[in-house]
């Protein structure tokens, strides 16, 4: 774990080689995930390309032109979030699948690391990938769809996007731990995950819509997103160990 280059997210002292603290182990796991991804970039590139393709598909599905600008004004927030969702799901699906296929997950489960630490580390690294992806796709969206956003709207959009991402990734990583070992697990992940996300997407698309009009999100909207984050974080931290403790570690 500590053999990789010492770059990427830093969060405190390195764990001792023999008995890492949980915080140290958490930092090491996040750094390890980040460094591995920066070396190969397979997940980020897959997510980015998927997002790009989705944006192009929308240009065929919706009659977007300068003469029908109002159509884009009504749909742009939805286009943006559906693109984020489709692209980010690739990263979530790989949260455990890649490690399991290469045999690393078994080693991780045998390591003296609490399950909750492993879960939060995986949530954090996946969140970093998703936020990076969203930054890239958002700029691409503004350029390709000829959109602009003002300061207040942009701040509101960023805050609500991060709040949504926390809930999305928290629940996504938990469901990914259920589905990676199943035949057709990538499809099952989407079947189980997307309906869970529909309520918060309903709110966050509304917030994005307001943001494009230059308005900040309401307190009720942000409250809803943060409440969902708290609920999903609580559920994830309580339930994750049940998915990896029995049945021979997720097998």
């Amino acid at each position: 774990m500590s053999s990789g280059p010492q770059s990427g997210p830093q969060c405190g002292a390195s764990p001792s080689a023999t008995s890492p603290t949980q915080w140290g182990a958490y930092c090491a796991l996040v750094r390890w995930d980040w460094v591995r991804e920066m070396k190969k970039k397979t997940t980020l590139i897959s997510m980015g390309v998927m997002g790009l393709i989705t944006l192009f598909l929308f240009s065929f599905a919706i009659p977007i032109s300068s003469t029908k600008a109002e159509i884009l004004e009504d749909t742009r927030a939805g286009i943006l979030w559906v693109t984020f969702l489709f692209a980010a799901t690739i990263g979530i699906d790989r949260a455990f699948r890649n490690d399991a296929e290469s045999g690393l997950l078994e080693g991780l489960l045998l390591a003296p690391v609490e399950r909750m630490t492993l879960y939060f580390a995986r949530v954090t690294s996946t969140l970093l990938f998703v936020v990076t992806l969203q930054g890239f796709l958002f700029v691409l969206f503004l350029v390709l769809f000829n959109q602009s956003i003002s300061g207040e709207g942009l701040v509101g959009l960023i805050v609500s996007a991060i709040a949504t991402d926390v809930g999305f990734v928290t629940i996504g990583v938990l469901i990914s731990a259920m589905t990676w070992s199943l035949p057709g697990g990538d499809v099952m992940l989407r079947i189980l995950l997307f309906p869970m996300l529909l309520p918060i997407l309903n709110v966050t698309v509304e917030v994005a819509d307001r943001a494009f009009d230059g308005r900040a999100p309401t307190a009720q909207q942000l409250g809803m997103l943060f409440a969902v984050d708290a609920l999903f974080l609580g559920a994830g931290s309580l339930l994750f160990e049940h998915l990896v403790n029995d049945s021979g570690g997720s097998s």
Binding site: L174, M178, L192, P199, L239, H242, L243
Partner: peptide, 13 residues
């Protein structure tokens, strides 16, 4: 195991 976890998650949602 998976069903029980998802069942709880579904209900709290």
């Amino acid at each position: 195991q998976i069903s029980a976890v998802y069942g709880i998650l579904a209900f709290v949602n």
